[in-house]
């Protein structure tokens, strides 16, 4: 510690100059143990970029949700690697992955998945309170702002069972945005909504990507989402068979 000051490096590491995607999957494999083993995801390669809205489509059981859980660090791959901003996150411990999910990722599921004992505002505040960067008052202000952005300012103190399906899903989106995530992931986020609410959520997702510069990844059956996405990833039998840049 008390040695002479180190001379500055002659040149910055070469990699810093190169373009690093937000999230990239390299040969991701996920199999379930069994005889014979069940392959959910086989050798998937995928790059997720900020500011882009990516839709993952394919028939039921093609492994798109399994791929999403791998990308979301909720599930662990049995093979391949996953890089977050160039850093391999595959070997991280459960707690380290949980911390990354809390700080960098936000999730929206097909079913709203709000905590039933907490009202809308409290649900949105939970990730902020867990992260603990904001004071309680600041967290509440931000949660109200997010609910306002979702058009739900007047429903802040309603409990989830007093909200309609569309409203609940928008509360879930607000909660996903609570810690200002770089990546928002959706698992059939419109799967349970009528067409009006569906269109609203899709608009919201596009806004998150195009106006707020976040990476948005959605698994969907909904052709309307697949149409408007910037990148359309098609899967079949656990493999990524097509990655198509749209628009």
């Amino acid at each position: 510690m008390n040695g002479p000051p180190q001379p500055p490096p002659l040149q910055a590491p070469a990699r810093a100059a190169a373009h690093v995607p937000l999230l990239s999957a390299e040969h991701l494999v996920r199999t379930l143990p069994g005889d014979p083993p069940v392959t959910l995801v086989a050798d998937a390669d995928l790059v997720i970029e900020p500011g882009k809205f990516t839709a993952i489509v394919g028939p039921s059981g093609c492994g798109k949700s399994s791929l999403l859980y791998l990308l979301a660090l909720i599930d662990r791959p049995t093979g391949g690697r996953l890089l977050l901003e160039g850093q391999d996150v595959t070997p991280l411990s459960g707690d380290e992955r949980a911390k990354l999910r809390l700080e960098r990722f936000g999730f929206v599921f097909q079913f709203h998945f709000l905590l039933p004992e907490f009202d809308a505002l409290e649900n949105v505040m939970i990730p902020m309170r867990r992260l603990g960067r904001l004071s309680l008052a600041a967290a509440e202000a931000r949660a109200l702002e997010l609910l306002g952005f979702m058009g739900l300012a007047d429903k802040a103190h309603k409990s989830p069972d007093k909200l309609s399906g569309g409203e609940r899903q928008r509360v879930a989106v607000a909660r996903a945005l609570a810690n200002d995530p770089a990546l928002v992931l959706g698992d059939e986020p419109t799967g349970n909504l009528d067409s009006v609410n569906s269109a609203r959520v899709v608009d919201l997702f596009r806004q998150l990507a195009h106006e707020q510069g976040r990476a948005v990844v959605c698994v969907t059956h909904d052709p309307a989402i697949a149409e408007v996405a910037d990148v359309r990833v098609t899967m079949l039998d656990g493999r990524v068979i097509e990655v198509k840049q749209q628009g």
Binding site: E103, L115, P127
Partner: peptide, 16 residues
């Protein structure tokens, strides 16, 4: 169990 899954996906650790 469902709430546990939600909290885990949000980023709560097993210890939490």
């Amino acid at each position: 169990r469902r709430d546990i899954a939600i909290l885990r996906s949000i980023g709560f650790s097993q210890g939490d």
